[in-house]
Amino acid sequence: MSATTEQPKTTGEQEITTTEKPVTINTKSLEEDDEFEDFPVDQWPASSTLKESKEFHTNLWEESWDDVEVDDNFTSGLREEIAKYKQEHQ
């Protein structure tokens, strides 16, 4: 155990999104176990790095988000709400 285990430990499910129920948190995950692990080997050929992999490298970043056209539920919701607001305030 490390010195950082002062908080009470609880176990339970972890939720990716909010739920109505309170989510129990496992504070053990704040301990030092969460580190950058050693690689099992120290060498691999330069040809097998992601830099050389066409599949991953060219695919890493999309255009910056200022250029991204968006149209989803959220935007259409906003559009309706703005129209409503304008109507009310004219």
């Binding site: 599949e55 991953f56 695919n59 890493l60 970043w61 999309e62």
Partner: peptide, 17 residues
């Protein structure tokens, strides 16, 4: 950090892959 420094969005396809 890509978002914060260059406003770069990682390709959704990469995460899916």
């Amino acid at each position: 950090f890509g978002l914060l420094s260059h406003r770069k969005l990682v390709h959704q396809g990469l995460l899916s892959k």
